[in-house]
């Protein structure tokens, strides 16, 4: 339903998103997770044809966002982060206006407006001016306008931000109900929201795609492995390839080099088992100088949490 390949967007020299590729299938709820400024909104704006990508391609429902922009736009429903609505209109007038812009016939508008207002729980405020509605209700009206043309793809930018806990629960329930027939992409910087709503998660940070996985897999990945930080004297590439070749090691990342021959690396074990002993003897046997070795307090989960809630930590 959605296909994104090597998508890159620069704002002048600043990176919006860099080389992001992913896919979303029909009926899937896909979550964009990342701190503010990670590029979630940029990615969504490209998918909704509001911004053209600098390079790469994005296809929505089989249509290219650049070449067949109008086809794409008539198949999506979009809710931007700050929910920009026309505050001077009443809810039903506003939905009527949006329905016309989305090219719906009079008959279809009449059917859909009532349905959508019912679905989003705004029927009883249909004659109220949007400017006089609370944030929670505006969010619902925003969802209504996205849904009015019964789109195949729904793109929601931080749909629960700024709502009170009760409203958040209601909006989440609403989004869950919307899925099934539609492909939903939503962005958030709240970790539990993803596991509650999404079938798959894309983690982005600083414009780059960090990982794509199901929330369950991410969790079990976090629980399964043990992380060991080693500081070794020797050639960086040799050390790295040596560590990677070991059967009990899943991944090796370079953390820092204090000087040319002293390097700190983070080693992730394949199983949930302490690999310090075997690792230290192997390093020494191989002839590298072992300077330090300790299990790290920073688990993958910590990194994950730190990554997505960075603005709260800093």
């Amino acid at each position: 339903m959605i296909e994104v390949q090597n998508l890159t967007k620069y704002y002048g020299k600043q990176i919006g998103i860099l080389d992001v590729s992913f896919k979303a299938d029909k009926g899937e709820i896909l979550g964009f997770l990342g701190p503010n400024g990670a590029g979630k909104t940029t990615a969504m704006r490209i998918l909704t044809c509001y911004l053209p990508p600098t390079s790469g391609a994005a296809r929505v429902a089989g249509f290219d966002v650049l070449a067949d922009s109008r086809e794409v736009r008539s198949r999506i429903g979009y809710l931007p982060e700050n929910v920009p609505l026309y505050l001077d209109l009443t809810v039903s007038d506003y939905l009527e206006f949006v329905g016309k812009l989305k090219g719906m016939s009079k008959k279809r508008r009449r059917e859909r407006i009532d349905d959508v207002m019912e679905e989003c729980g705004v029927s009883h405020v249909r004659d109220r001016t949007i400017g006089k509605l609370s944030k929670g209700y505006r969010q619902r009206v925003g969802l209504s306008q996205a849904l009015i043309n019964d789109p195949e793809v729904l793109i929601l930018d931080e749909p629960t931000v700024g709502l009170d806990p009760q409203q958040i629960i209601e909006i989440r329930a609403l989004i869950r109900n919307l899925a099934g027939r539609r492909t939903v992409i939503l962005s958030t910087h709240i970790l539990p929201e993803v596991s509650l709503l999404c079938q798959r998660v894309i983690i982005i940070n600083k414009g780059k795609l960090v990982t794509v996985d199901t929330p369950e897999n991410l969790k079990s990945r976090l629980q399964r492995s043990v992380m060991v930080d080693v500081t070794v004297r020797g050639g960086l590439e040799e050390i790295q390839s040596f560590l990677e070749s070991r059967p009990d090691v899943r991944a090796v990342t370079h953390i820092e080099s204090t000087d040319e021959s002293t390097h700190s690396l983070r080693v992730e074990s394949t199983e949930n088992r302490d690999i310090r002993e075997s690792l230290s003897s192997a390093v020494v046997e191989r002839g590298f100088g072992l300077v330090g070795l300790y299990t790290t307090d920073v688990s993958l989960e910590d990194i994950f949490v730190h990554l997505v809630t960075k603005e709260d930590v800093d």
């Binding site: 736009r73 920009p84 026309y86």
Partner: peptide, 12 residues
């Protein structure tokens, strides 16, 4: 007000 973002993502 940001309504342009919605307006120009409609099929107009």
């Amino acid at each position: 007000t940001g309504t342009a973002e919605l307006l120009f993502t409609y099929p107009i």
